[in-house]
């Protein structure tokens, strides 16, 4: 490739941006969690603790050191994939959240695949016939779901499919902690369904809008006036052009999935990092909060980065660009 240098540099630029973003996020995460009101030592020792015990524990936990030193040590630990020791339970955070991480990634991962397939699939179907039945139904459902808070979606799903007339799936995801989540698929169905319901409308709406705009672009009008069939126009003329912006939306859907995850895990009593985050916040287990927040940030930033890079590569304008141009 003549322009391999440019492409490599473009990817490097995207990676560098991602890393810079993560660095900024790390600062925000660290200092915002520090600013949470409440006292970890009191949370750990309970109401019985004496001031000396509290002070001792703070020293033990390293909470007496200067804040910048704490940040540097924490960041260094993060870089080595060692998020530290939970302030609350005094066990390594990594082992504490490992199984929950797997659980959450399982539902978010499965949901993500569905979101992408449904987002593009229904978006395309709806745009094949603007104002047609598919379009009207899809946009109706879309707007209905978009108007609901996440936990309401969860409750509706439970009412309809778990405790109401149809008792198809269990309403609570009581994962047997001794086995991995994916070996208990019936417990994953509803949480995944909820995540899909929560995240798909955002993707679908954006793809519909992008595609509909693209279907009125000069390129499509020209193709139409050149006798290209509508199917081919959609797949070959319109879709490739919306790939880059739509991937941004898909990456943003990861945010919705991770945000929805917290609500869904509560509604379904699903043991994942969302509920771990909530509980860590309530116990002021800052180290665990930081670890989970950083993990979520990394997933989001990586999603954006991958979307940027694939998006870049999907555009002939970027793909064929040469140095100095």
């Amino acid at each position: 490739m003549k322009n391999a240098g440019y492409v490599a540099r473009q990817i490097a630029r995207r990676l560098a941006t991602g890393i810079a973003m993560l660095f900024v996020v790390s600062i925000i995460v660290f200092f915002c969690t520090q600013a949470l009101p409440g006292d970890i030592a009191r949370q750990v020792l309970g109401q019985n603790a004496t001031p000396e015990q509290l002070a001792n524990l703070r020293v033990q936990l390293g909470l007496d050191r200067p804040i910048l030193v704490q940040y540097a040590q924490w960041l260094w630990g993060m870089l080595q994939l060692d998020p530290g020791v939970s302030l609350a339970s005094r066990t390594p955070v990594a082992s504490l959240i490992a199984s929950r991480l797997t659980n959450s990634l399982t539902i978010v991962g499965i949901a993500f695949v569905f979101v992408v397939v449904l987002g593009y699939g229904l978006g395309i179907l709806a745009c094949r016939k603007p104002g047609g039945i598919v379009d009207t139904v899809v946009s109706g459902i879309d707007h209905f779901i978009l108007s609901l808070p996440e936990f309401v979606v969860g409750i509706i799903v439970i009412t309809l499919l778990a405790v109401g007339a149809l008792r198809l799936f269990p309403p609570a995801s009581i994962i047997d902690s001794r086995y991995p989540a994916w070996q208990q698929p019936e417990l994953l169905v509803l949480p995944v369904l909820c995540l899909v319901l929560v995240a798909t409308p955002h993707v679908l709406e954006s793809i519909r809008t992008l595609l509909r705009e693209e279907l009125e672009s000069p390129a499509v009008v020209w193709a139409r006036l050149s006798g290209i069939g509508e199917g081919r126009i959609l797949m070959r003329y319109a879709l490739p052009n919306i790939l880059a912006p739509s991937l941004q939306v898909v990456a943003a859907s990861v945010n919705f999935l991770l945000g929805g995850m917290v609500a869904v895990e509560t509604v379904f009593a699903f043991p994942g990092i969302g509920s771990a985050l909530v509980s860590a916040v309530s116990t002021r287990d800052i180290v665990t909060v930081q670890a989970i927040a950083m993990f979520i940030a990394v997933v989001m930033v990586v999603a954006l980065m991958v979307a940027d890079i694939i998006g870049d590569m999907s555009m002939a304008r970027v793909r064929t660009k040469e140095d100095g141009q």
Partner: peptide, 29 residues
């Protein structure tokens, strides 16, 4: 369209499909 009556757009820079090479665009028609 494109066969008996054809069309030349105002701004070919935006009307030629940006992600198709000249050859592909031609072949498509």
């Amino acid at each position: 369209r494109g066969n008996e009556v054809s069309y030349v757009p105002q701004d070919p820079g935006s009307a030629l499909p940006p992600n198709m090479s000249i050859k592909e665009g031609f072949a498509s028609v």
